[in-house]
């Protein structure tokens, strides 16, 4: 706790002292007091003594309140602040989960959603969105930092993606086009899910889960969508459960996805089982965090609560005193 305008204190105290001196030297409203004799006619009365004691008490309260009010307002005017160090990258992220919900992917999607459902409880300022696609893309929820809502949506998604579920309403709208896993279109939809504008400072990443098993004729190829992502400075982290690369043999389907991810500055993770998703998501988060950790920034926050609270108390005291003291 420190004072931003500490020089206000001596100035204010000097002004306060000057005001007190002026008030003491200035005669009352009625002019100079008049001399009266035999004042003991009044002052010797017990009731007068009691009234005088009460008057003194309330006056003392009034004076103390005025001084406290002046002091606390002076303190508040001097702006008590507390400085805290923050790393801005941690809270400056936008993540869109871009999930291919074709039949082959559901198990992986459930693991990803589950992993993020856990992660989101630790988010502070990050925004997250969810888009699912098959032949057409559906935005389940846009980028938001309403974590309660996000957790609710992720829980609903997780439940829908369970292989035992009988309810397919969650996937409504993902079969509007002929074909399946139109990845380029899905990815492009996800990329457009980020807000436009040049002034944005937040890092953007897409967690894309797909096996790149394209069936149909997309409007965007994967390469075009990746170029779009690159143009929007979005990094793509791809998770592929069906990578058939083995040894020196590179699965051409997986390779396309890998290349697309690499062009955006992201990464590609082949999945051997849904259980590995959690560690991969953690790794992605770690990579992003590392990438974003900028210089520590000192944040200065005003802390006027104590002086202003005291001021309020003093105001209450003044009110009571003004009510009780006879002018």
């Amino acid at each position: 706790m420190e004072l931003k305008f500490w020089w206000l204190l001596p100035v204010g105290i000097a002004a306060l002292a000057a005001a007190v001196v002026l008030a003491l030297r200035k005669p009352g409203r009625d002019g100079a007091p008049v001399p009266v004799a035999h004042a003991d006619r009044l002052t010797a009365l017990p009731r007068y003594q009691r009234a005088l004691a009460a008057q003194r008490r309330w006056l003392a309260l009034g004076v103390a309140s005025v001084l406290l009010l002046a002091g606390s307002l002076l303190m508040a005017a001097a702006r008590p602040v507390s400085a805290s160090t923050t790393i801005p990258g941690q809270v400056n992220r936008d993540i869109i989960l871009c999930l291919d919900v074709s039949g082959s992917m559901v198990g992986t999607d459930e693991a990803i959603v589950g992993a993020f459902a856990e992660l989101v409880t630790r988010f502070k300022g990050e925004r997250i969105g969810l888009t699912i696609f098959d032949s057409s893309a559906v935005q389940v929820f846009p980028l938001t930092d309403d974590y309660e809502f996000v957790a609710e949506q992720l829980a609903a998604a997780k439940k829908a993606m369970n292989k035992d579920t009988a309810n397919f309403d969650f996937f409504a709208g993902t079969y509007q086009q002929p074909g399946s896993s139109l990845i380029g279109d899905g990815l492009a939809s996800c990329v457009t899910g980020f807000p436009g504008g040049d002034g944005q400072q937040r890092s953007r990443s897409i967690v894309l889960s797909t096996d790149n098993m394209l069936a149909g004729k997309p409007l965007f190829t994967l390469g075009e969508a990746a170029a779009l992502a690159k143009a929007s400075k979005v990094r793509i982290y791809s998770l592929n459960p069906n990578d058939y690369s083995e040894g020196t043999y590179a699965d051409p389907v997986a390779q396309g996805l890998k290349d697309a991810s690499a062009t955006t500055g992201g990464a590609y993770f082949p999945l051997t089982s849904p259980a590995a998703v959690k560690s991969i998501v953690a790794a992605v988060q770690g990579t992003e965090a590392k990438r974003l950790n900028g210089a520590a920034v000192v944040t200065v926050a005003d802390r006027p609560d104590v002086p202003l609270g005291l001021g309020l108390l003093a105001l209450a005291g003044m009110g009571v005193a003004a009510w009780k003291v006879r002018p």
């Binding site: 009625d30 008049v34 001399p35 009266v36 004799a37 035999h38 003991d40 007068y48 008057q55 006879r326």
Partner: peptide, 20 residues
Amino acid sequence: ARASYDVAGMGPVLTVLAAD
């Protein structure tokens, strides 16, 4: 109703209290 003081002790006399 003017502010007054006692010539015996030269102290103030709070005649406002006598409004009671």
